[in-house]
Each structure stands twice: as structure tokens, then as C-alpha cells.
Design a protein around this nucleic acid. Structure first.
Lengths: 382, 382
DNA sequence: TTAAGCCATTCAATCGGTTGATTTGATTTA
DNA sequence: TAAATCAAATCAACCGATTGAATGGCTTAA
């Protein structure tokens, strides 16, 4: 019984009156110089078009031992969507498509190490992996390396041996923001930080501290509230802070470790009739899309998410290429992306990228102003 | 030269001192009853664990002729990210993972029909496709069907032959919202609609009209502004409206065809010192995450995005199963998802889903209030 | 004792391609 | 005219699995 679905190499061969191998050669442009006569080539192309032939990606990948596919690990985690994940993913999708690479999204429930079974990424589906904001153990990284699966990380929490990680200037970012707040006249700056054992969290805290101390202000630990980088966490902590009036005079500015937190804080402030920035200034970190949507718009540090996604693809691909010794691309891929790069040059092959720390940019919007003459006094919930 | 990377079936077989076929049988639990002796089984499992064996997904897919993978088409389109896409994708990822299905995201630059090359989805990578908010021509759908590639659409713009489409009650949604506005006392309701030739756009407009006419108000076409469903479009049109003062008395309420538009409108209103909802009420449609983030929070119609994503996976899978006659799942998949469903029951196989129109829900928040006593009078830009 | 039956395992073909080596036949060179 | 050269196409093995049919050893019934 003939298969009902897609036409195969053999169907095309039959249709064109040649053998399957010839078709393969034509389709892939292998040794395109003189191997196949112009006439045959035309016949085959005609047959392929007539049958709407498309090579089976998996069969091809199997024999070539390369899938031209990169994997991205997505966290499916409760209900809160990580906005920045989408922005990075966008960059990844774009860059991958430009290079004729496919993208496959692996979904993982939560980033707890126990959920991260190395082998689930090692089934040949992807030539390499991008882990976004993961919580990988060194053992995990080692296991991947042992399986010869190239990978890069974005926003990885700590340093991993022999691993390319893309991150931003966390310390300088936080420093710059706090410096900005201080320049505006703020002296008591609350800091809603992230999970205490995160790498970036520590870096940003360090930036906060440096800015404060550099300005000759005391570093007051009671102004720092660790939590998680989510709007929920921001909401909870802010509520608690207002209710319990945990410290002396109310701060004139609140710096949040990321935008999501700031959004949660903003909600609570608004609910309590505390105006931003008249009563208290608010700053975030990330510049996710929502930052410019809320009112007032959020002053924040911009992370070049899309760019990071793109860059991680580039580096990953060169890593993949380095781990074998060949060049990519074939007729079909080329055909489908005429636009874009000249496509003549091979990809740069470089072991280690020169850039893996991206600059952040201070985005000044309406949520930060000068401190009020008389700092806000919460009506204690007590 | 031995391959450096992943161990294969043969490696395991050698390690366990049996043939590859036996390993295959053990690994897949095929005819698990009595075919393989307990002892051999144990030896094989041991060997597999020792070698960290994981079956190559593609080789397996090739011989099985099923990849256990569903494809989702993502639009990589300029800079504006479709928030709702992520929300649907989340549901898809979740539901797919629960069923041991993988998800592969295809990226397409824009939804113009000319970008939609049918064959790009027909390379065997996915067993079926989910198209989100596509602009598919009937020819395209037909081509897919001809290639026997099961697919479903979400928010498809028009009716396609023999195609399952998931959508929401567009007409009733718009009707309900406008009704709500009228109930609040509004009489002049501006409607910022979407692209005129969209299906849902027409439906929502119909709902708007019905509500207006049912209330005995005249349907005034000069109050309807078509555009695109983006925040940019909302910004532009609102700016224009304010500048040109295009109609008589300023409306007391603005209904936007989707949340993104409403966000753009909100920005412009705020910039111009027009207060929401004191001066004008504002309503959206979608209930994306941002709706509850902005201040004031947006009154909107909730679409069950995640649920739609989940449901589309279910239906797609049953369509895939129907298009062959078999049952899915294997040892590895089962092993990796112990939690979740009892996994005992087969998937329901049904040709046509009974539900493909989802209910929307009126979410009342702060952006809608009673109309002002004296409607706002814009200071004409002229 | 022999045929039948059952277990446990292996054979061999297949999925849809790729690729280095090889065949075929025509043309050129010695 | 035989040998060497070269273009055009094919052979056959392989990628890593799956699967229906076949094998061999052993037990049980006739």
C-alpha cells in the first residue's frame, strides 16, 4: 500500500526517471559543480516541484547527524508568565530562522534541579541548547558536556565551568540606577531584591551598596528586602512593609530588582493612595514591555533581551560548528531565505565569544521624581 | 571511529550482551507481557542506565512514522510582541507536555499569505500543526489537507472548509461590553476596531452595533475607527482623534477591540491629562496580563487563552490519532510523567470537537465608570 | 518417540535520506 | 588500438531506531 502522505525521495526519483541518490545530490547541491547534467537537474527539479516534494527533516538529520535545530528551554511554571522569556525567545527565533535553523521549545516544569533530567535534552532532537535563566548545577553542565551537547546559558545564576553565559552588567546596572535616584535627591532607598542566592541578585545588591556608600550614605540592611523576582512577590512584600511599618521614616524611593516586582509594588502603592512619583519614586530593572505601558511609565534599566537571544544563537551555532568540522546550509534552506545575509560566507567559528556581558541602559521615565518635601507617612496597619 | 556522542541502541545491546531488537522491545515495553525474561530485562535496564541511554527521537520517529510532536506557528513580526500568543503558547506547552508530546515552534515572518509556504510545515517535523491567529487562505488549508497534515487554528479570521477553529464569542463579547457601558449610563461610545476584513473584527463590530441599537441609540458610523489590533494603532488613532476633534461631543466611553489598543489609548489619554475613568471610560477585550497591571486596571472581556491552547492540543492530538488508527505512549514517556493523569486511559478519539467557541467573561475593573456630568471637551489641536 | 506449543531471542526489512566508492560509457591521449 | 581521463549516474552501506516473521531450545501432550 502506498503511503498516503508526503512524497519521498523515491517518488521524485521515479517521477524523474533517475535514482534516488541523484535526486539527493541535486536537492542538496552537493558537489554541485559538474556531477549532474543540466538536463537531469532540470527534470528532477521539475518533478520535485510537481510533487511538492520536501525532504523529511528527520531522515535527513539522521543520516547527516545534524538536525539544524536548536533547543530552547522554556519554564512552564505556575501561572506567572515570564515576560522577558518571550522577548528573549523572539530574538532566538529570529536569529535561528535567519540561519536556517529551527527552534524547538522544550518545556520544563519549574527550574528545580530535580526536574532537570539531563537526558531529556539528549535525544538528538536539537544540535545544541539554550538555557534561559536556569538553575543548573555544575554536575548538570558536566553531564551535558560529557554527552557532547553544546549549550549556552542566559542569565545563569552562577559560574559554570567551560560554559558560555550571557548576562548583563548587573552590578553596574544597579549602581547606575541607585546613583540616578541619589542624584535626584533621594537618601532613603528601599531595595526589593531577588532570591538571596542568585548570582545576579548578589551583583545587583552589590551595585546598590556601592552607589549608596559612594554617596557617603550608610548602607542600611533593613532597607533591603529579599524575595523572588515576581509581581506577586512585589505585591506581598510591599503590602507587608506598609502594614508593619518596618523601619523609621518612609523611604522616598523604591528600587526593585526587576520590573515584575515593580509592577506588583506599583499596584499596592496605588491601592493605598500613595502616588508615584509624587509620594515615592519607583524604579525597576529589565525594561520589559510592560514598563512603558503602566502609568506612570517605569524608570528602569534596559536589558537587550532580544539582542541577547540573537547573540546566544550565534554563539551556540558556532559552538555546534566547532564541535564538528563542517559547513552548513543546503539548497532548501538557501532557497527559503534569499533575503538577509549574502549567505556566501560561512559562519564564524570561534570557541569563546568575546562578548558575553551586555550593557544595560538607564531608561528614564515618569516613575522617578524628586523626593517629596515631607516624606509619606503610612497610616500604620497596627 | 566510534561516534563520540550519544549511546545508541546497539551500544546498549552490546553492553547487555543481547541484540538491539531485544533492547528496543524492552525500552518500548512492546508486548511487555512475556516476551522478554525478567533477567534479560533487568540486564538491559541496567546497561541503559549505565550508559545514560536515550533513544534517538528522530530515528524512532522515522520508523514509527510518528514524531509525537506538535508544531505551533509563531509570528515573528516587527517589534511588537503579541502577548496573547505567549499565553496561548503556555497552554499548548503545558497540555502537550502532559501528553508526552513535544512542541516545536515554527517562526514565520508576518502572516502574509506569501510568507506561508505550505511545504515548510510538511517536512515531517510535526505530526500536526496549530496555527494561531493566522491569515490562511482556503487554498493553504486545502494544501495541508492534501498532504494529510492535521491542523487546527485558533482565532482564525474566516471560515475554512473542514477545519476546526477555536475562537471566542466575539459578537456576544462585544455586545456584553457595550451593554455594560450603556448600563453605566454611557450614550456616546467610541469604538476602536481592528482590521476591517477580519472575521472577529466584523463579529465584534456586530456586537457593538446590536448593543447600541438594542438600547434604542442610533448606530453612528463616525464613532467606529478601524485600525490594527496593536497598541501603536491605538496610540495613533487616539492622537488623531484628539487632534482633529472628528465628531460632535466627545464620547464618554471608548471601547477598544483588544487590550493592546486600549493600552495605547490609555497612554495618549494620560499624556493629554484626560483622566480614566473620570473624564472618559475605557474598555478593552482580551484580558491579557497587562490589563490588570495598568492604572487604572482595565475593564475588559476575558478570553480563556491558556484554556484555548490546551484544548487545541487535545483536539489536534485526537485528530492526529484519528488519522491513523493507533495508540501512543511508550516506556520513556510514561516514566517521565508519572504525575498528572492516571495515564491508563487512551486519548479520546473524536473527529469533530463539540466545543470550539469559548465563552468570554466580563471582567469589571476600574477603567470604566459612570459618564461625567459634563463630557470632556478636548482643546482642539487645530 | 514425535509432533505440537511455548518462550525468549534474533533476523531482516523498513523508515527517508546521505555519501564515498564504483560502474558505465564516451572522449581524449599516448 | 590500448590506456588513461572524465562526466554522469548508480551501488550499497549507513544513520538509529521499529516490527512482523523466523529461529532454536525446551516442555508438554499424544
Amino acid at each position: 500500500m502506498r503511503r498516503s502522505s508526503a512524497p519521498t525521495l523515491n517518488d521524485v526519483a521515479r517521477e524523474a526517471g533517475v535514482s534516488a541518490m541523484t535526486v539527493s545530490v541535486v536537492v542538496n547541491g552537493t558537489g554541485s559543480n559538474t556531477r549532474v547534467s543540466e538536463d537531469t537537474r532540470r527534470r528532477i527539479h521539475a518533478a520535485a516541484t510537481r510533487l511538492c516534494y520536501r525532504p523529511n527533516a528527520y531522515a535527513r538529520g539522521l543520516s547527516r547527524r545534524r538536525m539544524d535545530t536548536i533547543g530552547v528551554v522554556a519554564v512552564v511554571d505556575g501561572n506567572e508568565v515570564n515576560l522577558y522569556f518571550l522577548e528573549i525567545l523572539n530574538g532566538v527565533l529570529e536569529a535561528a530562522a535567519e540561519r536556517g535553523q529551527n527552534t524547538i521549545v522544550f518545556s520544563v516544569k519549574g527550574w528545580q534541579p530535580e526536574h532537570l533530567n539531563v537526558t531529556q535534552f539528549c535525544d538528538g532532537r536539537a544540535d545544541g541548547m539554550i538555557f534561559i535563566a536556569p538553575n543548573l548545577t555544575p554536575e548538570f553542565a558536566e553531564a551535558l558536556q560529557q554527552r557532547h551537547l553544546p549549550f549556552v546559558t542566559i542569565h545563569h545564576g552562577s559560574e559554570l565551568p567551560n560554559t558560555v553565559n550571557f548576562d548583563v552588567e548587573n552590578e553596574r546596572g544597579a549602581y547606575t540606577m541607585v546613583r540616578h535616584l541619589i542624584d535626584q535627591g533621594h537618601r532613603r532607598i528601599l531595595y526589593l531584591s531577588g532570591d538571596a542566592d542568585g548570582y545576579d541578585v548578589r551583583q545587583r545588591l552589590a551595585g546598590y551598596r556601592r552607589a549608596v556608600e559612594e554617596a557617603g550614605l550608610p548602607f542600611d540592611e533593613s532597607l533591603v528586602f529579599p524575595g523572588s523576582y515576581s509581581s506577586n512577590s512585589g505585591r506581598q512584600r510591599m503590602t507587608q512593609i506598609l502594614a508593619q511599618n518596618l523601619f523609621g521614616p518612609f523611604p522616598t524611593a523604591i528600587f526593585c530588582g526587576n520590573d515584575a516586582t515593580a509592577l506588583g509594588v506599583m499596584e499596592v502603592l496605588t491601592e493605598n493612595g500613595i502616588r508615584v512619583p509624587e509620594d515615592v519614586s519607583l524604579a525597576g530593572f529589565d525594561d520589559t514591555l510592560t514598563a512603558q505601558i503602566i502609568t506612570p511609565q517605569l524608570t528602569t534599566m534596559r536589558q537587550p533581551f532580544r539582542h541577547m537571544g540573537r547573540r546566544s544563537v550565534e554563539v551556540l551555532i558556532s559552538q555546534i560548528n566547532a564541535s564538528r568540522g563542517d559547513s552548513p546550509a543546503n539548497d532548501f534552506q538557501r532557497l527559503e531565505q534569499e533575503e538577509g545575509a549574502p549567505a556566501g560566507s560561512a559562519y564564524p567559528v570561534q570557541k569563546t565569544p568575546d562578548i558575553d556581558v551586555f550593557e544595560v541602559e538607564l531608561i528614564i521615565r515618569g516613575s522617578v521624581g524628586r523626593p517629596p518635601l515631607h516624606p509619606f507617612i503610612p497610616t500604620s496597619g497596627k
